[in-house]
Design a protein around this nucleic acid. Structure first.
Lengths: 366, 366
DNA sequence: AGCGTCCGCGCAACCGATTGCACAAGCCAC
DNA sequence: GTGGCTTGTGCAATCGGTTGCGCGGACGCT
């Protein structure tokens, strides 16, 4: 219970107690083979006794390596982003890296500040989960081959700007939506409506996939409803429009939207799955506890976070810019898409199928 | 497109271009009033032109201030923790602090590593959301008055060890559960069962509160079911036990558990709310979209995260260790606790009531 | 005894920014 | 013309480890 000045213990203190120079102490602590056993033990003991904790700032300054990774995402409270964050953190920690987690919240200015902070701290690598800035703008602040884009969703991509060709990590959305549509069609549904925000490259891609597969089955042209990008608060509007002219099945941009629509449909005469089949995307936990359980496409978000770390570490170590990867997704058949009475009498049991592996483009399952 | 060595721009470069010394450049960039307008403008221009980004490590080393906060939590994918994290990050960012987010996952060893990393990086402040370590152990690595405990849940608290007296931030669980029980009782339910993990101080407190309020209404002794601490996978067991001898109402440790129980009850003959009322705690999003909508107690988790930052910053600035705070919670009446037919014909409309404000102990609302 | 090796360790520079103190002008007053 | 003051800058030390290079001694060999 000493009331000493309580100065931080520094390496010099350890060295003094161990009777060596700072250099030797430093080497002893990091298991440099040049240090003898006796000396090493003495230094270790001294460090332990003094409760020495090395200063990361000093180390990083000299080593030009911070052992810090950054993750920029929209919202930590979002289930999908939370899973990515969890996987990212776990993988980073297991490699001895600390993680700066920043939220951009779709705000350009906030995002820029976050990128600046990451640059100032000289993060060894940065993963960007859906950022609103132009990629070119990002690379102006961060070294190009230390950045990975995770599930990028370019709001509008400024004229002339191109999405980065490398260092992109995404799930097989195309394969996933194709599988979902195939499933719907196979179960006998014909009149399908797609509901999405109406903006962003991810929405465009998903919509296009749905459209394409429907066309292939001569069920086009696609019918769709835009619910706007402002969260899914407008689900009530969507529900009304659906009630006004009900399709047989609805495919949503993601689970969050699907669950909101499901909720918004309650006051209407439409019941899922009695009058309407419903499909989501992402496989977030509430989708598996909803009533009815949602048919959805499981995106391995945690794994996505982990992979992002692996990609970053690999490119840090080798200096080689990360290649792009696409991770497979899995269709999870729930209770919201039962076989349509008038058609195929397929068994109502859970079915699973995987989309292609790490191929560049999503392959629609059969 | 120059293929130059691409050396990082340092302050010296800026100073050279601006024709000043490093000292002046440094001061000019941080708006030191001693620097003249002309010089300042020159330095600014040089920095901008060169794309200078100060090195946080160097700055921290000298300043002995890192502008880094740490947040240790169980699982980023958990809705409650995600909200705390979101609030924490947002508040930190608004004050110009970066956040190291670490997950402990209830693993002692992992948690220790996380604390060590935070200590090495000399985080200016650290918030611990439910950590498993002994507080004494934490304070051995981190300066005592730079730590805040958020919703602490001591697994078993080693003999002799005491929970920290200051720097504790928690929601008014007592008030919340009391309100929930009052609500249940008021609606006519008599036979109430509490379901919780069966371990941890938080569970003990909640159980005790339920018990106490029931006693007050002469409805004791409390009946309860332990579902174990291993997540809520054992909800099925709980459902079976409930089905075997159904109470009139069930109060759960939290929403996640309540939703699992709700889900697990589906195969049984028990329907919520027809045969059984159900109450959760936390107010996570899925609880408001479930079917039936869950009656729950809303914990302002985002606000909790924000407050944690405020507490830390205050104690960093003033050097005064943070006091403890209790934030109020709010009962949200959903559809899972309708008035019991045989009793009070209370209106089925949404009701809201707040518990006491920042008082030390939760006040049960009347 | 003389010489070449190898091992273990210390000196001092270095990473990049901040800051106490001193110094150089410029201005006014005595 | 010199002292006193204000204003604007620069020198150099400092934060706390890391690391290239060199040195001294022990050891083996001829």
């Amino acid at each position: 219970m000493r009331r000493a000045p309580e100065r931080r213990v520094v390496l010099a203190d350890v060295a003094r107690l161990a009777g060596t120079s700072e250099a030797t102490a430093s080497r002893a602590l990091k298991d440099d083979p040049r240090i003898g056993e006796t000396t090493r033990a003495a230094v270790r003991a001294a460090a332990l006794k003094l409760g020495y904790v090395p200063n990361a700032a000093a180390r990083s300054l000299r080593a030009r390596r911070t052992h810090i990774l950054g993750l920029l995402l929209d919202d930590l409270a979002d289930p999908v982003h939370g899973k990515v964050a969890a996987g990212f953190e776990e993988a980073a920690a297991s490699h001895g890296f600390a993680v700066f987690m920043m939220t951009g919240l779709h705000d350009q200015e906030r995002e820029e500040r976050a990128l600046t902070v990451l640059a100032e701290h000289r993060a060894d690598g940065v993963a960007l989960a859906s950022c609103v800035s132009d990629p070119t703008d990002v690379f102006r602040r961060l070294p190009k081959d230390r950045v990975v884009f995770v599930q990028p969703d370019y709001p509008a991509l400024a004229d002339g700007a191109e999405p980065p060709a490398r260092g992109v990590l995404r799930s097989d959305d195309t394969g996933g939506f194709a599988a979902a549509v195939e499933h719907i069609v196979e179960r006998g549904y014909r009149r399908v409506t797609y509901v999405g925000p109406g903006t962003g490259s991810a929405d465009a891609l998903r919509r296009a996939t749905v459209s394409e597969v429907l066309d292939r089955h001569h069920l086009g042209p696609i019918r769709s409803i835009d619910c706007g990008p402002n969260g899914w608060r407008d689900a009530r509007d969507v529900a009304e429009r659906l009630a006004a002219d009900p399709p047989e099945a609805v495919i949503c941009y993601d689970d969050k939207l699907a669950l909101s629509v499901l909720d918004a449909l309650r006051p209407t005469r439409l019941d899922v799955p009695r009058d309407l089949a419903l499909v989501g995307f992402d496989g977030i936990p509430p989708a598996r506890q909803s009533r009815p359980r949602l048919t959805t496409v499981d995106v391995p978000s945690v794994e996505l976070g982990r992979r992002a770390v692996e990609m970053l570490l690999a490119s840090i170590k080798d200096g080689i810019p990360a290649a792009s990867e696409v991770v497979p997704v899995e269709l999870i058949v729930g209770e919201s898409t039962p076989p349509l009475a008038r058609s195929t009498p397929a068994a109502p049991r859970r079915e699973r199928q995987r989309t292609a592996a790490v191929a560049g483009r999503g392959t629609s399952p059969r």
